[in-house]
Design a protein around this nucleic acid. Structure first.
Length: 259
DNA sequence: GTCTTTGTTGGCAC
DNA sequence: AGTGCCAACAAAGA
């Protein structure tokens, strides 16, 4: 689930804790050792959470003392804001208890995500090769990036070090809306295709963020709610096909998306 | 049992 | 050296 629009949603959730003090971090699952959570507490206890930001699929929570809590959600992570409840959601791994006794809960079903505390965020971004956010990159940089790729279009869109935030699901939607075949070589795209792709990328991301990253609320002509083999294309009613591209299931409409 | 899954990484091939 | 591609990771659901 967590690609750019989902993480943007989590960021808004985390922002509810803005202006609150961290009372304590509780180890509520089996992902982190007590030692790890202990050192998180050493760093963060009694610090104030101020702003939040996001780059690609990474969520950053900034404290008043200049630390950044970096959250990545892997394939199945979530962030939830909980009131004074007794019961934690299933698979919750960390609970940031705030001074109003509400809490921010980091949830991860498959333990593939990470939470760490970082002093120099710029350095962290460099070391982890988190490319410019897909909503921040300008049209000229985007064009240069696509032209510089020898891979298939789908792999390029998912290359987090060049442009961050787009994963398997949303790349399918962007290519569907742009009418481009996922397996086309980037080098074969014309300037006008690339401009169209850029505009489409922005519009898909902005639209899905606005819809709370919930496929049920996506526009009629979106692929994501029908992203299964054999379903019918929301535009031409043709059959949706699945192919593998760099090992990932890729869904597309062969008649709307031609090479 | 088997197979698939939204992300990232390490290693292999070119 | 740089790129591109895929298996592996963990765990659950179909």
């Amino acid at each position: 689930m967590p690609e750019l629009p989902d993480v943007e949603n989590f960021r808004k959730t985390a922002q509810k804790a803005g202006g609150k003090k961290i009372k304590e971090i509780k180890n509520t699952g089996d992902q982190f050792s007590d030692k790890e959570v202990g050192s998180m507490n050493e760093r963060l206890k009694n610090k104030w959470l101020e702003t939040t930001s996001r780059r690609g699929k990474y969520l950053f929570m900034h404290t008043d003392a200049g630390e950044t809590v970096v959250c990545h959600f892997g394939m199945t992570g979530e962030m939830e804001y909980a009131g004074e409840r007794k019961e934690l959601p299933r698979y919750s791994k960390l609970q940031f208890v705030l001074d109003n006794n509400h809490s921010l809960v980091y949830i991860s079903k498959r333990k593939l995500g990470k939470v760490e505390i970082v002093d120099e965020l710029e350095k962290y971004i460099r070391e982890n090769e988190i490319g410019p956010d897909a909503l921040d990159i300008g049209p000229d940089d985007f064009t240069a990036f696509i032209k510089g790729k020898n891979s298939m279009l789908k792999s390029a869109l998912m290359d987090q070090s060049s442009i961050s935030g787009i994963g398997n699901i949303y790349s399918d939607e962007i290519m569907f809306q742009a009418g481009l075949h996922p397996g086309i070589k980037c080098s074969k795209l014309k300037d006008k295709d690339i401009q169209n792709l850029y505009d489409t990328m922005r519009s898909v991301l902005e639209t899905t963020i606005e819809k709370g990253a919930n496929p049920e609320n996506f526009p009629e002509n979106y692929l994501i709610p029908r992203r299964n083999e054999g379903e019918s294309c929301p535009v031409c009613n043709g059959e949706i096909k699945m192919i593998k591209i760099s090992g990932r299931g890729t869904y597309f409409c062969p008649s709307c998306q031609k090479k």
